[in-house]
Nucleic acid binder design. Structure first.
Lengths: 176, 176
DNA sequence: GTAATAGTACTCGGATAGTAAGTGTCCGAGTTAACCGGG
DNA sequence: CCCGGTTAACTCGGACACTTACTATCCGAGTACTATTAC
C-alpha cells in the first residue's frame, strides 16, 4: 500500500469541487455520488478536514461544506496531515540498541542522540513535506480549470443546485 | 504503518555491519542474532539486496555476505528500492474520470495527460528520493564510527570470526 | 397572521466486517567445504 | 598419501499463520431548516 492513502485522494478531489461551489456548498453525500465514492466512507473524512480548519460545515437539511479560507492558502501538506494525522515516513525501532553484544544494557553512546539512519529518513521526509507545502489547492484547481471546458463546470454547479432544491419536502406530492 | 518498513531498517543496519566485515562476511544468521532480529525474516531480505547488486553471497558451510562495491557508492535510495521494490508514494485511482456526470464515458480532456494531484505527489516523491540518494552507506557508517568506540567494533569483528570458526565439525568431539 | 409541532436530511461518532500488506515462521532443495574412512 | 562419501551449515524459494492498517458499511444521536398545523 502506498504511504498516501485513497482517503487523501478523495479529500483533495472533494476540496477541489468546493473551490467552485459558492457559499452554500454541497454535502458530503452530494460529493460522494458525483464522484462515485462511498458516501459513508467520505463522511468519515470530512470531519477530519473540519477539525483541521480547512472546511466549515453547516448542519440540518440544507447543510453542507464550504472552504473556510481561500484555496491559495490551503496547501496539500495541510490536507495530507489533516487526513493522515502526520504519519511518519519511517518508524525507527532502535535496532542498534538491541545488539546482543551488550546484553539488555546498551551503553550511553549507543542510545545517545538520534540514529543516523533515522536522521537520513527525517531529511527525506522533510523534503517530501516541503514539496507538498509548495502546492496549494488553488494551484491544483487552476490546472483543472484550464483542462475542463467551462460548460462542464457549470453543469456540475447546476447539478449541485438541483440536489439542494430536491431536498426537504417530498411529503405529499412531487412537483410536476 | 509507515511507508518505509522495518525490512528497510533491518537491511540498512545489516549493510552497515558489512562495511566493517572483511572479504569473508558474516551470514544472515550471524547478523540476525547479533542484532536480535528474526533470522528467517532477515533471510528473506538479503536475496533482494543481492538481486539489486548491492551484496554478493557465497554458499556452503563457510558462506556469508559481503558488499559488492564501496560503501560510498551505495545510496540509501538503492537500498530502499531494492527492498521495497520502488513502491510509489501515491496510487492515483483516476477519481476524476469516475465522475457520474459523464456516465461511464469520460471525455478526452478528463483522461488526457496526468492528473494534477498525481503530478504534485510525484514531485513530492521525487524530492524524497533525491534526498535519499544523497545519503550513502559510507556516510551513515562514518557517523556510527564516530560514535562507537573502536574497541566495540573490534569486539563485534571478533564475535563474527568466532562464529565462523565454530561452524563445521562438531561431530565427535569438541576441541579443548 | 403567528407560534408550535412534525418531519426531513444533514453532521457526527461508535461499532463492526472485509481486504490487503507487512511481519514472522516453517520446511525442503540445492550448494559448499571440512571431516572421515577406504584404497 | 590420495580420493570419494558423509555431514553440517549455508543460501534460496515457496507455503503458511499472525498482526495491523485501510477501506467500507451500518446504525443511532443530535441539529438545523421546512412545511404543516393549531391558535
Amino acid at each position: 500500500m502506498a504511504h498516501l492513502t485513497v482517503s487523501v485522494e478523495y479529500g483533495i478531489h472533494c476540496l477541489l469541487w468546493l473551490v467552485d461551489a459558492g457559499e452554500h456548498g454541497p454535502s458530503s453525500r452530494d460529493l460522494a455520488e458525483l464522484q462515485g465514492i462511498s458516501p459513508t466512507f467520505l463522511a468519515k473524512i470530512f470531519p477530519k478536514l473540519e477539525k483541521a480548519g480547512l472546511v466549515q460545515s453547516s448542519g440540518g437539511v440544507q447543510g453542507g461544506y464550504r472552504l473556510s479560507r481561500h484555496p491559495d492558502e490551503i496547501t496539500l501538506l495541510q490536507i495530507v496531515d489533516a487526513i493522515e494525522g502526520d504519519k511518519p515516513l519511517f518508524d525507527c525501532r532502535q535496532v542498534r540498541s538491541r545488539c546482543s553484544m551488550y546484553a539488555d544494557d546498551p551503553p550511553k553512546w549507543a542510545t545517545d542522540g538520534i540514529c543516523a539512519i533515522h536522521a537520513a529518513m527525517i531529511r527525506a521526509e522533510d523534503a517530501m513535506r516541503t514539496s507538498l507545502s509548495e502546492s496549494t489547492l488553488g494551484s491544483v484547481a487552476a490546472i483543472y480549470h484550464a483542462k475542463a471546458p467551462a460548460q462542464f463546470l457549470d453543469e456540475v454547479g447546476g447539478w449541485f443546485e438541483e440536489r439542494l432544491r430536491n431536498r426537504r419536502v417530498r411529503t405529499s406530492s412531487t412537483p410536476g
